[in-house]
Design a protein around this nucleic acid. Structure first.
Lengths: 145, 145
DNA sequence: TAAATTTGTTATGCAAGCATAATAAATTAA
DNA sequence: TTAATTTATTATGCTTGCATAACAAATTTA
C-alpha cells in the first residue's frame, strides 16, 4: 500500500492546505482559521461551550484558552446559562459580529470557488463519502468477533 | 450556504477524527500521529529535511523541533549531506525502524478497514476529487481578470 | 570574480489541538 | 436525603502546525 493511495494521507494534506489558505486570508483582518470557525458557530442568542465543541469537532477542553483570548480581544463575552449553572454561554460582541461577517465571507468565497470548479455530483459524492468515512473512523477499531 | 454542505467543514472534521484515532492507537506504543508519518517517510538511505517537509505537506521550519525531540528519544539521527552541505539528511536508528513498522501497521490497518467498507469506485473518486481540491486550493485565490 | 539572491536549515514565539486534573452543579442510585 | 456518579467548565503542560529571523552554502547576476 503506497502512501499516495491511502485515504488518510490525502485527508491530511488537503485539510492542511485548506487550513493554511484560510489562515492566510483571515490574517488579512486579524483572525485565524480556528477563530473564524468559532465566530461562525456562535448564535445570536448565545451558544454553550459544549455545543461549540461539538460543532467544531474538538474537545470542549480545547476551547477555554481560546475563549479567554477571544474575550480579551473583545470578540466575545461569556455568561453562565440560565437553566444549568454549570453551563457557560458564549455571545458575540458587536466587534465579534463584524469579524464573523468577514469570516463567513472567506468560507463562502472559497466554497463558491470550489463549487464553480467541481460538478454537483462530485461534491455530493465527496461529502457523502467523507460522512461515511467519518462514521467509520468514529467506530474504529471495529469490535472484535 | 449551510456549514454542513461545505467541503471545508467536512475535511476539517474528518481529518481531525482520523488524526485523533491515529494518535490514540499510536499512543499505545509511545509515538504520535505526526511522528508516525515522519518515520514512515524516512528512507533507508536517509531523507533530507526539505524532502520530508514536502512529503508531509508541512513547512520545513516545522520540523526542526520535532526532529530534535526524535533525535533525543533515539528514533533518528541527522547528518550533513555529502553533496550539498546546507542539506541535512535524516536517518532511522534501529529503534526508529522498529517504531516505523508499528506506525506503518497502524496506517495499513486503518486503510484496510476503510477499504473493506468502501467500494473501489468510492475510494478512487474520493482520492481523485481530493487531489483536484488540493490543486484548486493551492491555486487560491484565482488570478483576477 | 564579486555581489546579490536563493535555498536548506535551525531556533523561537505564537496558536490551537490533546490529555489530565480540579471543581462545581446536576443527576442517579442507595 | 445522602452519597456516588456524571456533566460542564477551567487551567495547564505538551505537541506540532505557522511565521519570522538568523546564518551558511549554493546559485545567479553583473
Amino acid at each position: 500500500m503506497k502512501q499516495k493511495e491511502t485515504v488518510d494521507y490525502f485527508l491530511k494534506i488537503v485539510w492542511q492546505n485548506v487550513s493554511n489558505t484560510y489562515n492566510q486570508v483571515a490574517a488579512g483582518f486579524g483572525i485565524t482559521q480556528a477563530i473564524g470557525y468559532m465566530l461562525i458557530n456562535i448564535e445570536a442568542d448565545g451558544t454553550a461551550v459544549s455545543a461549540l465543541a461539538g460543532l467544531l469537532g474538538v474537545k470542549a477542553t480545547s476551547l477555554s484558552r481560546m475563549l479567554n483570548n477571544m474575550e480579551e480581544s473583545g470578540l466575545i463575552y461569556r455568561e453562565t446559562s440560565e437553566g444549568d449553572k454549570r453551563s457557560v454561554k458564549v455571545y458575540l460582541t458587536p466587534f465579534g459580529i463584524e469579524k464573523r461577517k468577514l469570516a463567513r465571507d472567506v468560507v463562502v468565497s472559497f466554497n463558491e470557488y470550489l463549487n464553480e470548479r467541481l460538478s454537483l455530483k462530485e461534491r455530493e459524492q465527496l461529502i457523502s463519502t467523507l460522512e461515511k468515512i467519518n462514521q467509520l473512523t468514529l467506530a474504529y477499531p471495529p469490535a472484535k468477533k
